[in-house]
Lab assay of single mutants.
Amino acid sequence: MLDDRARMEAAKKEKVEQILAEFQLQEEDLKKVMRRMQKEMDRGLRLETHEEASVKMLPTYVRSTPEGSEVGDFLSLDLGGTNFRVMLVKVGEGEEGQWSVKTKHQMYSIPEDAMTGTAEMLFDYISECISDFLDKHQMKHKKLPLGFTFSFPVRHEDIDKGILLNWTKGFKASGAEGNNVVGLLRDAIKRRGDFEMDVVAMVNDTVATMISCYYEDHQCEVGMIVGTGCNACYMEEMQNVELVEGDEGRMCVNTEWGAFGDSGELDEFLLEYDRLVDESSANPGQQLYEKLIGGKYMGELVRLVLLRLVDENLLFHGEASEQLRTRGAFETRFVSQVESDTGDRKQIYNILSTLGLRPSTTDCDIVRRACESVSTRAAHMCSAGLAGVINRMRESRSEDVMRITVGVDGSVYKLHPSFKERFHASVRRLTPSCEITFIESEEGSGRGAALVSAVACKKACMLGQ
């Protein structure tokens, strides 16, 4: 009897593995994704193909990295998701002549009506938060230079001027797309009239992360975010950046690689679950690469896999709870928690219980395998993109072996128990001629924006502006 049951459990697990095998990517698959990513990057950089390229390769006008001589107080704003952060950054000489960066910050959550109302409502709310922060720190009387981390696709015309191309991540505030974001912020500050600010720089969160990590390690020339969304930036040779005049030196390019796949480059790798996630998203047909990796989508992918296993009578005796059938019910943090389970399955059992399920031991094991399959594919897909960037940098610099540091931020990278190990191992397999160091950014977005502002202020002083 026991043997029969054991055989049935083994057969069930084997069927589960057959279904989950769809998520496995072979090294040849990853090399294919990497080569296609490089081709799209090239198209994004070139003037004649930029418009139709899915990977936009947006110039950021960040050319210099901090040298350690900029000092002063800077205000930093960070808008990239449902939370908005205001930070005071003091850049100065530390002990023994070292450079020191001290920060104080406060988080504000953005109400739904500000995210989806008008641009005026959104930026009025942001300036209200700045006003509140300055009151708390008794700094209303000071006109501070301000660095703005704005983590949406922007076409820069200068370091302090950028046109919002399109909202992502659930934002829909009308009247912002096609307009200068810094102008919208300046107008809102003017409307309030109770404080003055000098907006000197606007950067993407990947750029802010790279600059913040450069402060720790001067070989950091790539910034990457794996959180709600997924994106990367890197220092490109100016001669390859056709959208900006000049051939000397390097400029940081914001790849906006989340949109890779929007022209069909990933079609052969998309599964039924991916198509369902895409169809029910706020932007169907867009940001397809990001939807395979980002935390906004990972939990939902797992939920759809679990429903398939229920329908195949391989999980929960073929019956799903009402909660499990509800879109968004299986949160991405559950994926991390399930994979963090120590082996007694308590954590998995508790999560499934909150979803109205009474799982068996085998159910718990199957749910864990589903989570591992989805998150491992995410790590491997992400590795193909980064390997594409790094191999490109090595080739354009004609280096036999390139040493490089990548600064990384984002909740999936930082909080998932195995993502970074799987990701690092896969990147290294795909970049055999590179020695890569990964560092995690601390308060990256805010500190990085302030350091970019410090560079901009120093330049302005040198130019006598």
Rank of each mutant, 00 (worst) to 15 (best):
T206G: 04
S373Q: 06
L304H: 10
G94L: 11
G68W: 03
A173F: 09
T116A: 13
N240S: 03
E237H: 02
G94A: 10
V253F: 04
G162V: 11
C233G: 01
G385A: 12
N240A: 02
E157D: 15
E442W: 14
D135N: 14
T255C: 13
A6F: 15
A173S: 06
W99R: 09
F316G: 06
A320W: 14
S418K: 07
V199I: 07
F195A: 02
V200L: 05
P284G: 14
T342R: 03
I211V: 04
T168E: 07
Q239M: 10
V338Y: 01
F260T: 03
A329D: 13
D262E: 09
S151M: 11
E440Y: 11
F152R: 12
Y214S: 07
K458M: 13
E312M: 15
R275W: 12
M37D: 00
Q138R: 12
M107F: 09
T405K: 05
S109A: 09
V253T: 05
A370P: 00
E67A: 06
R325C: 12
T405N: 06
C230D: 07
H141F: 11
F419W: 13
Y349F: 03
V427G: 03
C233L: 00
E157F: 15
N179Y: 12
I225A: 01
A456K: 03
P432Q: 12
L45K: 06
A387E: 00
S281Q: 07
H137Q: 10
E331A: 14
D205N: 03
A188P: 04
T209F: 04
D160V: 09
S418V: 11
R369H: 06
D73K: 00
M34I: 07
F195P: 14
G328H: 02
G343Y: 01
D262F: 10
A6C: 12
C371S: 03
E312K: 15
S212T: 02
E157Q: 13
D363C: 04
G446K: 10
S373R: 07
G162Y: 12
V253W: 00
F123A: 07
A384C: 13
P417G: 12
S69D: 15
S281L: 11
E322T: 12
D344E: 07
G410S: 10
D158P: 15
V406N: 00
H424L: 06
E421D: 07
E245C: 03
V89E: 01
L243W: 03
G246R: 03
D400I: 10
S445F: 13
D158F: 15
E248F: 06
E95Q: 12
G80L: 14
N83Y: 11
D409T: 10
D187F: 04
Q337T: 10
V401Y: 05
L146D: 04
G170E: 12
E242S: 03
G261T: 06
N254R: 05
K161M: 13
L304A: 06
E196N: 01
M139V: 09
A454S: 11
C252S: 02
V389N: 02
L324P: 00
L324H: 01
I366S: 03
I163V: 12
R63M: 00
Q18W: 11
F152K: 14
S441A: 06
L301R: 07
D160M: 09
G80V: 10
L25V: 10
Q219L: 07
Q347S: 07
G178W: 05
V89K: 01
Q323S: 12
D400V: 07
S76R: 01
R46E: 15
P153V: 10
E395G: 03
G68C: 05
Y108S: 04
T376P: 00
R333V: 05
S453P: 11
R368Y: 04
V277C: 09
D135E: 08
E14F: 14
K296L: 14
L304G: 07
G385D: 01
M210V: 02
N180Q: 11
A329W: 13
C457Q: 04
S453D: 15
W167C: 13
H156T: 15
R368D: 06
E256N: 14
G388E: 04
L309M: 05
I366L: 06
G446E: 13
F133S: 04
D267A: 06
L165T: 14
T168I: 08
K136F: 08
F133I: 04
F74N: 01
E9C: 14
D363W: 02
D78C: 09
E67M: 02
E322V: 09
A460T: 12
T431G: 04
V226N: 02
S360N: 05
L75C: 01
L306M: 15
R192C: 02
K296G: 13
H141N: 04
G68D: 07
E237F: 11
L47N: 04
A176G: 06
E93Q: 06
R394D: 06
I211F: 00
V310T: 11
Q347E: 07
G356E: 06
R325N: 09
F419N: 05
R275S: 06
F330A: 03
H317N: 11
T342I: 02
L30M: 04
I211S: 00
V199M: 12
E95D: 08
E242V: 00
R392T: 10
S418R: 12
G170K: 07
Y61F: 06
H424N: 04
R5Q: 13
L306Y: 00
P284M: 14
E312A: 12
K102H: 03
Y289L: 15
C252R: 00
L430T: 02
L122V: 08
F123N: 11
A208C: 03
G175E: 04
M298R: 08
F423R: 00
D341R: 01
D205V: 01
E93H: 11
E17C: 14
K136L: 07
V305Q: 01
E272C: 08
S69M: 11
L324Q: 01
R5S: 15
N166P: 15
F260D: 00
K12F: 13
S321D: 07
L415D: 14
L451Y: 09
V200W: 01
D311P: 15
R5E: 14
S383N: 00
Q38I: 05
S383E: 02
G448Q: 12
F438S: 02
G72R: 00
F171M: 12
G223R: 00
N83A: 11
I126E: 06
G227R: 01
A201L: 00
C382S: 06
L271P: 07
K291M: 11
L306G: 03
M57N: 02
Q323M: 10
S281N: 15
I439P: 02
A456Q: 05
E157M: 15
G407V: 08
R333M: 13
R46C: 12
A387I: 02
M381G: 08
T361W: 05
V374S: 01
C382Y: 04
L306S: 05
K459G: 08
S340F: 03
G175L: 10
L415E: 14
M202P: 05
K346F: 10
A282G: 09
G295A: 14
T82L: 12
V203T: 06
H317Y: 09
C129N: 03
L276I: 14
Q106E: 14
